[in-house]
Amino acid sequence: QIFVKTLTGKTITLEVEPSDTIENVKAKIQDKEGIPPDQQRLIFAGKQLEDGRTLSDYNIQKESTLHLVL
């Protein structure tokens, strides 16, 4: 699982696999929060994550925290 922290300070927990794409993660966030993926920007280690890449591409491991910017 990974954590996604929103600007409001809320933390969302997501069940993911390293092979999941960023697009996939955004879809999971939409399921939980109702935020359309095209409004979501995910930041990890100061980098904006691209939809077509996977979590493992960015070396995002379990218990990692991503930041969600709208």
Rank of each mutant, 00 (worst) to 15 (best):
Q1T: 15
Q1L: 15
Q1M: 13
Q1I: 15
Q1C: 15
Q1E: 09
I2T: 01
I2Q: 01
I2R: 01
I2H: 01
I2P: 00
I2F: 03
F3A: 04
F3D: 03
F3K: 06
F3S: 05
F3L: 06
F3P: 01
F3H: 11
F3T: 07
V4G: 01
V4T: 01
V4I: 13
V4E: 01
V4D: 01
V4Y: 02
V4S: 00
V4F: 03
K5V: 15
K5W: 05
K5R: 12
K5P: 01
K5L: 11
K5G: 04
T6H: 07
T6S: 07
T6C: 14
T6V: 10
L7F: 11
L7W: 13
L7C: 15
L7R: 09
L7M: 14
T8Q: 12
T8G: 11
T8E: 13
T8L: 12
T8M: 11
T8N: 13
T8R: 10
G9I: 02
G9R: 04
G9D: 05
G9M: 04
K10L: 13
K10D: 08
T11H: 06
T11I: 14
T11V: 15
T11C: 14
T11Q: 07
I12H: 03
I12A: 02
I12E: 01
I12S: 02
T13W: 08
T13C: 11
T13D: 04
T13I: 13
T13F: 08
T13E: 07
T13N: 06
T13G: 05
L14F: 05
L14Y: 02
L14V: 09
L14M: 04
L14C: 04
L14H: 00
E15T: 11
E15Y: 12
E15L: 13
E15N: 11
E15R: 06
E15V: 10
V16S: 04
V16N: 02
V16P: 01
E17A: 09
E17R: 06
P18H: 08
P18E: 10
P18V: 10
P18N: 07
P18R: 04
P18T: 09
S19W: 12
S19L: 09
D20S: 07
D20I: 05
D20A: 07
D20Q: 05
D20K: 02
T21G: 03
T21D: 03
I22A: 02
I22G: 02
I22H: 01
E23H: 12
E23G: 13
E23W: 13
E23F: 14
E23N: 09
E23M: 13
N24S: 14
N24Y: 12
N24G: 09
N24A: 14
N24Q: 15
N24P: 00
N24L: 15
V25P: 00
V25C: 06
V25G: 00
V25T: 03
V25Q: 00
K26M: 06
K26Y: 03
K26F: 03
K26P: 00
K26V: 02
K26C: 02
K26H: 02
K26S: 02
K26A: 02
A27E: 10
A27S: 12
A27V: 12
A27C: 12
A27R: 15
A27K: 14
K28D: 02
K28E: 03
K28M: 14
K28F: 06
I29W: 00
I29G: 00
I29L: 07
I29Q: 00
I29D: 00
I29T: 01
Q30E: 10
Q30K: 11
Q30G: 07
D31K: 12
D31Y: 11
D31A: 14
D31S: 12
K32H: 10
K32D: 04
K32C: 11
K32T: 08
K32M: 11
K32Q: 11
K32P: 02
E33T: 14
E33G: 05
E33W: 13
E33N: 08
G34N: 08
G34K: 06
G34I: 02
G34H: 07
I35P: 04
I35R: 02
I35H: 08
I35D: 02
P36S: 08
P36G: 06
P36K: 07
P37F: 12
P37A: 15
P37V: 14
P37S: 14
P37T: 14
P37I: 14
D38G: 11
D38R: 10
D38C: 15
D38V: 09
D38N: 11
D38P: 07
Q39Y: 09
Q39W: 10
Q39R: 12
Q39M: 13
Q39L: 10
Q40K: 02
Q40P: 02
Q40W: 06
R41N: 12
R41T: 15
R41H: 12
L42H: 00
L42P: 01
L42G: 00
L42K: 00
L42E: 00
L42M: 03
L42Q: 00
I43L: 11
I43G: 03
I43A: 05
F44L: 05
F44D: 02
F44K: 03
A45C: 14
A45K: 14
A45R: 12
A45G: 12
A45P: 02
A45L: 14
A45Y: 08
A45D: 14
G46I: 02
G46E: 06
G46K: 04
K47M: 15
K47E: 14
K47N: 11
K47T: 14
Q48R: 07
Q48A: 12
Q48S: 10
Q48C: 15
Q48T: 15
Q48W: 14
Q48G: 06
L49V: 04
L49N: 00
L49C: 05
L49E: 00
L49T: 03
L49Y: 00
L49R: 00
L49P: 01
E50H: 08
E50M: 09
E50S: 07
D51Y: 05
D51P: 07
D51L: 05
D51H: 06
D51R: 04
D51S: 08
G52D: 11
G52N: 11
R53P: 05
R53E: 05
R53S: 07
R53N: 09
R53Y: 14
R53I: 06
T54I: 06
T54C: 08
T54Y: 07
T54E: 04
T54D: 03
T54G: 03
L55M: 06
L55T: 03
L55Q: 00
L55I: 10
L55G: 00
L55Y: 01
L55C: 06
S56M: 13
S56D: 10
S56K: 13
S56P: 03
S56I: 08
S56N: 09
D57K: 02
Y58W: 02
Y58A: 03
Y58P: 00
Y58T: 02
N59A: 08
N59H: 10
N59S: 07
I60N: 01
I60M: 04
Q61W: 07
Q61I: 12
Q61T: 12
Q61V: 12
K62R: 07
K62T: 15
K62S: 15
E63H: 12
E63K: 07
E63I: 03
E63P: 03
S64R: 03
S64V: 07
S64E: 09
T65Q: 06
T65M: 10
T65C: 09
T65Y: 08
T65H: 15
T65N: 04
L66F: 04
H67E: 14
H67A: 07
H67N: 09
H67F: 11
L68E: 01
L68W: 02
L68V: 05
L68Y: 02
L68I: 05
V69K: 07
V69E: 11
V69L: 13
V69W: 10
V69N: 06
L70N: 09
L70D: 11
L70I: 15
L70Q: 10
L70R: 08
